[in-house]
Amino acid sequence: MKVSFRLNGETRSIESAPLDRLLDVLRRDLGLTAAKEGCGEGECGACSVFLDGVLVCSCLVPMAQVRGRSVETLEALTRPGAPLHPLQRLLIETDGSQCGFCSPGMIMAGVDYMRRLARGEVEDDHEARLRAIAGNICRCTGYTKIVEAIDRAIEEAGP
């Protein structure tokens, strides 16, 4: 079937089976490989993207449910020539990305939390920050530096 949707601000129309996973379409058909497959079961968060502004695991989204919607991937956060998102920059500064495989999903989860915070949808505290990234497994860092990057990004963003 033909699926039309917005991808990182542009309208795309592609041929896909209705139960194809959004993750496969992004990676295989559209060449957007920031989202990674770590488990294929929605348990590791490496494939996180925004669907209509909502953070989801793209391995659990069938293309049938992408039709007419808007998808935002990590690629949209960085435009050529433009500065990195503060969380991306801080993840570099804190050495919070080691092997980097979880980083795209982790950044999407952190950005989601910052956006919700800016929209006044969440009550911010340490536990809420941890909960926001608890669906993203990192095996390298023990999370300490990732949490530091998120703390600093929120602090920079200000109240």
Partner: peptide, 27 residues
Amino acid sequence: PLAGGSDLMVAFRDVSKLPRGFVLDLL
């Protein structure tokens, strides 16, 4: 019937769990 897919999309990895007929997308 399929809603958010958080259970079913995992189940569908196993082809034997696919429906005989079709999936009814409720969203």
